[in-house]
Design a protein around this nucleic acid. Sequence first.
RNA 1: CGGGGUGUAGCGCAGUUUGGUAGCGCACCUGGUUUGGGACCAGGGGGUCGCAGGUUCGAAUCCUGUCACCCCGACCA
Length: 574
Amino acid sequence: MERSTKYMLLSKLLGERFKEKPADAFMDSHIFMLRGGYVRQVSNGIFSLLPPATRAAKKIEQIIREEMDAIDGQEVLFPVVLPAELWQESGRFESVGSELVRFKDRTGRDMVLGMTHEEAAVHMARGEAKSYQKYPFMIYQIQTKFRDEPRARGGLVRVREFTMKDAYSFHTSQEDLEAYYERVLEAYYRIFQRAGLSNVIAIQSDTGMMGGCKAHEFMYLSDVGEDTIVYCEHCDYKSNMEVAVSHIQKGCAEEQEIREVHTPGIKDIASLAEFLNIKESQTIKAAVFFRRDNEMPVVVFIRGDLQVNEVKLKKVVGTEVFPLNDTTGTGLCFGFIGPYNLNAENVQVIFDKSLEGEKNLTCGANKTDYHLMGISVSRDLKVDKFYDVSKVNEGDACLYCGSPLKVSRGIEVGNIFQLGTKYTESMNMQYMDEEGKLKTPIMGCYGIGVGRLLACVIEDNHDEYGPIWPKAVAPWLIHICMLNQTQPEVNDLGFKLYNELKKDWDVLLDDRGAAAGVQFADADLLGAPVRIILSKRNAANGQVEIVTRDKKIKKLVQAENVRQEVSSILEQVK
RNA sequence: CGGGGUGUAGCGCAGUUUGGUAGCGCACCUGGUUUGGGACCAGGGGGUCGCAGGUUCGAAUCCUGUCACCCCGACCA
């Protein structure tokens, strides 16, 4: 019996492969992982990995490990289950929503499932790093996380339980953190490159529930990505849509008198612009939200052609906001809300910067079926402050160089944060500096989702038949097919090559005696970079065929030269 | 959490409108013929038709409830 999945007989490999497209999958990586016997869903967003995926994941983890060690990381392991007290110390037991799984243990003690490990890292570090002499240091783990996502989807791209590499660094100065942050950023680029993932960019991002000041997300650019990225082709500007900024072209309208117009049933900007034959950019849109703390509705006034960026708005109002659909009890005249003569006693009003200085605008009249035309913002409205709460649109001018901005989709495969002292301070972590004074360390954290990265590697490396694994990640490097296996010379040569090659490489031997088409289809799904094909007709000449999974190399070689040919071909493939 | 969709064998599906013995293709097992892109012949195993109630002589099919999964949105290190 084979004892190692490193080399393996295909007849023993666990994992049914099939040719039909699974009905529930729509992403290529998801389809191939199901069809190729890589993963099986156990529950929504919860997967088991079969041997091929396990092997590929381990290889990715090893790449990550090497690169983390290369920037002085020390590997550790935190628990999956943590006591609520730790999360109460940081304040996140209360502040994080229901994606944090909370439960009670046998004795009724509150516990959580780790969804990220800042608290655990500080808990470890504060007990072990009491002198400045230990600093700086970085600890990391590769560990299961659980987040009860409201909506898992796309196979391994967005799941509830997943393996993540998370790293935490501790510093005695902001400068030191920033210098280290740069080292991590470069290590991340090396990791993605080594894993065979092209087209990953680092972009500025929102810090979200992590807190802190500066953060980057590493985005694999892909049409099936869930995140929207704004970037400038001319300068270096790249940002998540959530925090993207742009220069908004201002109108140059003439000032006009205010006049009321009858607009029966015209409740949205598109129909208003059409009804009055004006541009959408000449209107003021009112978007209403409610605050999570339910204090009062938030009315955002923004130029009619723009949209409200809820992440930006959340930062301005200081709490989460949700679009308000139920109008009753707000005192607002829905569909006809305008900033002029608005009874704003019971609402919070925010003006977007797109309105600053604009003239001759049309807005709701705060009474049903009427709008006002000719509003000039500086003349007619009292605005204390304009905020940037608008979404960037493709083609907007870059704030830094003026070139038109581009918009793309991406999958977040990693992120890095400068956390500052958010956790070290709240959790009372201190060290003694050179002068004998107690100081609070400054912290950074850095994550990579292993399974998501694996899925992205397939997204980036596949054809219509299956994955084309980069050799650094491939479950097996060499896949031997024996056509006409009933012929002793084929069978014997197959096992001879298998036994020889497995000394140096991860090898899979198809010993099932299956039809050629079956063997090829399965080899495509398993995606080994190099395929060796044995057949009756070539065995007669002492030859075997070697092809690469990407079909770029295909050659007949003498059986006795296979080892060196494989070696040289492996040098050439990605 | 809102909107939509689907639950029948491991996978893909038909059957439900009009109630009457649980079906098809692929996969799996046995034997045989095959073998350069999912080949063929013969035989076989596998289902409480998501679950729970109800109507009925009789329910995959009709009614009520419930659960799960998928898609869009909301949400999200």
